[in-house]
Design a protein around this nucleic acid. Structure first.
Ligand code: MN
Ligand code: MN
Ligand code: ZN
Ligand code: ZN
Lengths: 142, 142
DNA sequence: CAATAGTTTAGAATAATTATAATATATAGT
DNA sequence: ACTATATATTATAATTATTCTAAACTATTG
């Protein structure tokens, strides 16, 4: 309850109208201890599980993209299939479990900072991210 | 001409039948000095430009995936929209130009090797890749 | 409260990719 | 070389992720 006022405030500060749907999605995304990595489908499923009311899929897309634009969420590319989003908006690296298709945050202390000795001329670096793909050790050796 | 025999051989060695379409795609992909980064659409366009005959889009998809499975191509994830492929199959990092949507190989000497101090328990690391997103320096400062 | 601008929604539209099933081709065995 | 078999190609349909549309709804401002 108190939390909801926080979300309404948060949305207002970002210039987003605190609609019922946006506040609900905030609750699902940000009322948690740990980072949440999800696809739009994951989120839509969670909404229909945890909520009595439905939110239109278009609204889920719109809201997630609105949050991304305002810096509440980050988009992570894993494959060409679908987009992952991340409630951890700091610069950080990921493990991607190819068995479970899960994204896991990499502890920043576990990787030394990356030094790029030569950038493309006339361009500015916007982000530097590592993706570590892992899989079960006992695999069928083709 | 001599090149084609190489491609036929290359395909045979990988257990792929050297069909007309596969050899043609080999020519387009591998008869070049520099790494080629492309989307299926890029490749399909090149095929229809450089060839007199058409190759069905399904065959382009099938062939690219067959080559990927055999290790002739690598898939690179940039965003959730579409897949990029890479004729440079060695482990390497990329710049992604957000203005032109171009992928550029990063010289291995320009980045020190990455040391991951803690892996996920019970999992084996399959790949470690950096994606450096760059954009024009003189941008609209929102 | 009324006006307005912004939001939600169902459903249509697009775009990337994959599946289907008929036809064609490559290859191994004769 | 001819035939049988497995595999590949193709046009087209189907699927999936995402975005668009336009009408109904709602938050904010005065
Ligand atoms: Mn997006
Ligand atoms: Mn693929
Ligand atoms: Zn993360
Ligand atoms: Zn490359």
């Amino acid at each position: 309850m108190t939390k909801n006022f926080n979300f309404i405030d948060k949305l207002r500060k970002a210039g987003l109208r605190p609609t019922k749907q946006r506040v609900k999605i905030c609750e699902i995304l940000f009322n948690r201890e740990k980072t949440f990595h999800f696809t739009i489908n994951d989120l839509a499923k969670k909404i229909s599980e945890e909520l009595n009311e439905k939110i239109s899929l278009a609204t889920v897309y719109n809201t997630v993209h609105a949050f991304e634009k305002k810096g509440y969420l980050k988009e992570i590319a894993i494959n060409g299939d679908k987009s992952y989003f991340d409630t951890n908006i700091t610069a950080h690296h990921h493990f991607y479990d190819e068995d479970t298709h899960e994204l896991i945050d990499c502890d920043q202390n576990d990787i030394d900072s990356i030094n790029i000795k030569n950038n493309i001329t006339g361009k500015k670096i916007n982000s530097v991210e590592i993706l570590i793909k892992v899989a079960s050790d006992n695999q069928n050796q083709n």
